[in-house]
Each structure stands twice: as C-alpha cells, then as structure tokens.
Amino acid sequence: MLVFDQVSKSYKKGAVKAVDDLSLEVRPGEIFGFLGPNGAGKTTSIKMAVGLLRADAGRITISGYDIAKEPLKAKACLGYVPDNPDLYERLTGLEYLNFIADVYRVPADVRRQRISRMLEMFELTNAVGDLIQSFSHGMQQKLALTGAWLHDPDVLILDEPMVGLDPRSAHLFKDLMREHCDRGKTVFFSTHVLEVAEKLCDRIGIIKKGKLIACGSMDELRDQAKNQESLENIFLELTEQ
C-alpha cells in the first residue's frame, strides 16, 4: 500500500541529511505509527510521500503508483493532513470541504453522507457554515481530517493528527482509524504520544537522525530492546545515542 524504498533526502545541498536510506512497507489493513525525536525526519518523510517534497534518491509508491512518476494517480489514493493544519481562512468550512470533494470527484450523495457523519462526530455541524478564520486550532484540525477522509483514500498519511484534539474527539478519531483499516485501508501517522501508538498501531517504526532504527509490532520491538516492557522505555533506550 505505502512503500518507502531506499529513500533519502537532504536539505541545503547535502548539509543536513534529513532522511537517510529509509525503507519501509505499510500493508493493507495496517495502522502504522511513525515515532522519533524532534528533527528525526518524520515530517520530511511524510512530505515526500505525499508529493510535497522531491526525494533525492529512492522510490515511494502509494497503492502501487510511484508518487514521482504517476503523481496524479498516487495522489488520488491518498489523504493527507499536515502537522499544522493551515486551511483557507477566507472560505467557510463547508466551502472548503466541497472544494476538496470536487477536486477528488466525490459523488454528491457520498460526499453529503460522509461530510454529515464526520461533522456530527466532531460536533462541527453548527460551525461549518462560518469562515475557517473563526475556527479554533482543534476545529481546524478536525476540518482538515474530515477533508482527508472525504474520498475514502486507500492510504491516509497524517502528521501528528492528535495534536489539538480534545479527549473525546481523539477517542472517536482512533475508532475511525481502526474502522478505516478494518476495511483493508492503510493509516500511516507520526506521533509523539506513545500510549496512542502502543495501543492503536499494528506496527511501529522509530526513526532517528533520518535512519529507521527499529520497526515492527510491539512484540518485535520488545525483543529488539531486551528487557523493556513499555513503549516508552523501548523508545528511550533505542533513541539513546
């Protein structure tokens, strides 16, 4: 579904190696958590996967489409929410959602049904007619998530999606991710909240200084970092020097 194949990226003409030979496969039906210290290269990897940044080397495919070679097909299978959900402030919430639905070509009845379901879940039904400018940070995050869900993408790529969500919304949102994956789709997200990753993810990857230093299910990670039980301890041990 989502495959990184020996992907590298450096900034400033090679001075900063942000992602270093990253290889990783996320399978259908899987929720994949992407962990790592600040500046490890999570956002950079994600931006390359959604076609915002060009990789220096390597290949990224989404549902079998190379994001560099067949960007339109790859992007059509993809939903993305960035780490800072800036949206068009001067559109209303609904105008934004309808814009997204139009460009992803979501049929009328499907879009209405999805939009109203998500809005009800996030309690945005009353706010959606207002300008996005008037939304709180969390409301914008919810709107961005709703937009990413509209076309029922094969692969959802989310950069720190939990930031700004209140506990109830975060809970509902986790259910939504689970449900999405139960239908054979894929979710790939970065996070700093280890409890969420531990409970929710089928597999976890830990990246440090651009390199993938660990990858696997919780059990596999436990084996790798001997005698550590919680993900927090595993994370601390693996990312130490």
Binding site: N98, A101, I115, A127, G129, S134
Partner: peptide, 20 residues
C-alpha cells in the same frame, strides 16, 4: 474576530453548498 453565525444550515443551503 470575525462574524460567526454558528447556526445549523437549512436543508436547502446544505444541498446547495454540497452540490458537485
């Protein structure tokens, strides 16, 4: 600060604003 209506859209508005 911008104006907020915070009102539920009527059925007609809703249909119009979600038409493809």
């Amino acid at each position: 600060e911008v104006s907020r209506k915070s009102k539920q859209l009527s059925q007609v508005q809703w249909e119009a604003q979600t038409s493809p």
